[in-house]
Design a protein around this nucleic acid. Structure first.
Length: 660
RNA sequence: GGGCUCGUGGCGCAGUUUGGUUUAGCGCGCCUGCCUGUCACGCAGGAGGUCGCGGGUUCAAGUCCCGUCGGGCCCGCCA
């Protein structure tokens, strides 16, 4: 409802956000999904409604009807010379003389610099809004002067220019005092919010998230439909596979001792759909992984699952880019430039220490192994001689870090197995000998530090951090340190969205302990045409046709071109040393299908939760799920999982072997 | 499986390090009364906690010790 609705009658349903009882007149802020409207109970309009409104409390559910009216001017503050009318044009700064009329009255009326003028009736009425001080003034032209009234418009409300004068109130329900106020920016522990999620979700920002999530899914459906994709449901109860994450299991009543598994993703079914002649499939699919959770990981989550036949890498990337653009622009009002940058996996690892880089800031990792090869610092040389590396990052302004700061950061990298964090501060001193400050400077030739400084791009006032260790540890430690400091030092522009593809992944990873190769992603990931011959000679160098889409340090899509030829699949199984009987038991149906004319196909799975997190700028996945589970996998509302009756267990032939 | 951290009226927090003037304090909210233009309304008065739980040390425990439960972040795990 807006000013244009004035003088119409209206009926409103909603919850009471706040009640302001002035004895004679009662104001109630009534909230529904669309926002807040002020409703007024005036005994002169309806005595019964006013009397009833006396009992109204926060979060009561009301139905009111009345007249929409423009908010009338308040108390007359002063009269001013009619000549000031010339200033009442938006964009024209108010004169000092005019301003002083306000401040002379009372300091609380002193106008800020941020004052807006709205002409309501040309040459007759104006609304003056002091945005900074959150005050309004009504100005009316009299015969030969201007009357300035205290305004009753609330510039913070979209409906702030109007109110509903109630002539009939119906209290649809009462409510206990809510455990926390139903408004944005509250400071309440998350478990309290979760326990009262039905109250929490009433808050405007939560409503906004729910709506944005809905729009994202709707946009995805529309887009995929336009692109010729069919939405097909795949089973929720399926076979357990020992690969990858732990399955969520469901016992079978018909087959004692046997279990269904909930899908970790519809991977195999969507590939079978390709074999079934559905050349373009998608699904908004719930996926389940029984692993420990994190801030961005939940036991169950939602993917926009996509698969297409006769398609290669470029086809999938192009469709996905279009999808992302549509979702972010239509659901999130965030402009997106396509195509996205493609970054090879090895380059991402080298520069950022991980394959989901946040590229909104610099502070990239720099390899210094060659420079440090002949230094006297044994921590470095020992790491290098045992096949490790020395890398560093330069932290802007880090020369100010205290000993305690550095100690804390050392502790931070220790969680990633780094045994230490070497540091050298770059001072503004010009002399090469005294330019670098640190306990370890003596172990290096000045030229070594100078080369390091130059490569890292460190400036006077910066600190250089070094980690020397196995490549994995160096990458983990420095990559995480980079992100940690980037956040802490406010180097990240929250309004930017940096999309990029990570490509050219290896197909296999060597497992030291097991002394064999393991798939880098999964068993059905295809290899590039060029590196396919290496399968026989040097499997470690085979490149996969896998791709990840990353945005602001978050992996939001993952996919690949799949293997569609039986002979290639066979070779993969050989390299991975999977026994033929295992293949038959675990993937028999799948292998079977592969031999009946499988088209080349490829797919991807954008994570809906993470997309909404990005668009809402949320760090926690629970914020974008209506009813999330706690970190321990408990449902704060229903307290699932729960025990079941003996009778239920008996039907399932299950005996529970713990004391409850 | 491991590390860190939090737990004090309905909510947010102080007090815990150095046990004892705290009958456990503050803000918000709540309740009652007054108030016809507020929008974080105002004014006056009031109710409400035994400090997550269990055990121990002590003359004395919110405060120290042990255990346990719950929330969160991270490593492992997970793509």
């Amino acid at each position: 409802m807006r000013l244009s609705d004035a003088d119409t009658t209206a009926q409103l349903n909603g919850w009471v956000r706040r009640r302001r009882d002035h004895g004679g007149v009662i104001f109630v802020d009534l909230r529904d999904r669309t926002g807040i409207t002020q409703v007024v109970f005036d005994p002169q309009i309806d005595e019964k409604a006013h009397a009833l409104a006396d009992s109204v409390r926060s979060e009561f559910v009301l139905n009111v009807s009345g007249t929409v009216r423009e908010r009338a001017p308040g108390e007359l503050l002063f009269n001013a010379d009619a000549a000031f009318q010339a200033e009442l044009v938006n964009g024209t700064p108010l004169s000092t003389e005019f301003r002083s009329l306000f401040s002379d009255l009372d300091t609380k009326y002193t106008l800020s610099d941020d004052v807006k003028v709205n002409v309501r009736e040309p040459d007759k009425r104006w609304l003056l809004t002091d945005i900074e001080n959150n005050r309004t003034y009504d100005i009316e032209r009299e015969a030969d002067s201007l009357s300035i009234y205290q305004g009753t418009v609330n510039p913070e409300l979209a409906t702030g220019e109007i109110e509903v004068a109630v002539d009939s109130l119906n209290i649809l329900n009462t409510a206990k005092t809510p455990p926390f106020p139903v408004e944005d920016d509250i400071e309440v522990a998350e478990d309290i919010r979760m326990r009262y999620r039905f109250v929490d979700l009433r808050r405007p920002e939560m409503q906004k998230t729910l709506e944005m999530r809905h729009k994202a899914a709707l946009t995805a459906r529309n887009y995929m439909n336009e692109q010729g994709f069919l939405e097909i449901e795949t089973p929720i109860l399926m076979n357990s596979t020992p690969e990858g994450a732990r399955d969520v299991l469901v016992p079978s009543r018909y087959y004692p001792g046997k279990f269904y598994a909930l899908p970790q993703s519809p991977q195999q079914f969507k590939q079978i759909l390709m074999m079934s002649g559905v050349d373009r499939y998608f699904q908004i699919a719930r996926c389940f992984r029984d692993e420990d959770t994190r801030a961005d990981r939940q036991l169950e989550f939602t993917q926009l699952d996509i698969e297409m036949s006769f398609a290669g890498v470029d086809d999938v990337l192009e469709i996905t880019e279009g999808l992302m653009k549509r979702i972010f622009e239509e659901a999130g009002d965030i402009p997106v430039q396509t195509p996205f940058l493609r970054l090879p996996y090895y380059e991402s690892m080298a520069r950022f220490g991980n394959d989901k880089p946040d590229t909104r800031f610099g502070m990239e990792l720099t390899d210094l192994s060659d420079v440090m090869a002949d230094c006297d610092f044994q921590v470095f040389t020992r790491a290098l001689s045992s096949g490790g590396q020395v890398k560093g990052i330069a932290v802007p302004g880090g020369a100010d870090f205290s000993r305690k700061d550095i100690e804390d950061l050392t502790e931070f990298v220790a969680t990633y197995r780094a045994k230490g964090l070497a540091w050298v501060k770059v001072t503004s001193d010009d002399q090469p000998e005294s330019k670098y400050s640190s306990g370890i400077v003596k172990f290096f030739k000045t030229e070594q530090l100078e080369t390091a400084q130059e490569r890292m791009g460190a400036k006077p006032g910066d600190i250089m951090f070094f980690v020397a260790d196995r490549p994995k540890v160096v990458a983990d430690a420095l990559g995480s340190l980079r992100l940690h400091l980037g956040r802490k030092l406010n180097m990240i522009d929250e309004n930017r969205y940096n999309f990029l593809w990570i490509v050219d992944y290896p197909l296999f990873e060597w497992n030291e302990e097991a002394n064999r190769y393991e798939p880098f992603h999964h068993l059905f990931t295809g290899a590039t045409e060029e590196t396919l011959p290496l399968l026989d000679t040097d499997p470690g160098r085979v490149q996969s046709q896998h791709y990840d889409l990353v945005c602001n340090g978050s992996e939001i899509c993952s996919g690949s071109v799949r293997i569609h030829r039986w002979d290639v699949q066979q070779k993969i199984f050989d390299i991975l040393k999977i026994k033929p009987e295992d293949i038959k038991n675990r993937f028999g149906y799948f292998i079977d299908a592969l031999e009946y004319g499988t088209p080349p196909h490829a797919g991807i799975a954008p994570g809906l939760d993470r997309i909404v997190m990005l668009m809402r700028n949320e760090e926690n996945i629970r914020e974008v799920i209506a009813f999330p589970k706690s970190q321990q996998g408990l449902c704060p509302l229903t307290h699932a999982p729960s025990t079941v009756t003996e009778a239920q267990l008996e039907e399932l032939s299950i005996r529970v072997d713990i004391d409850i």
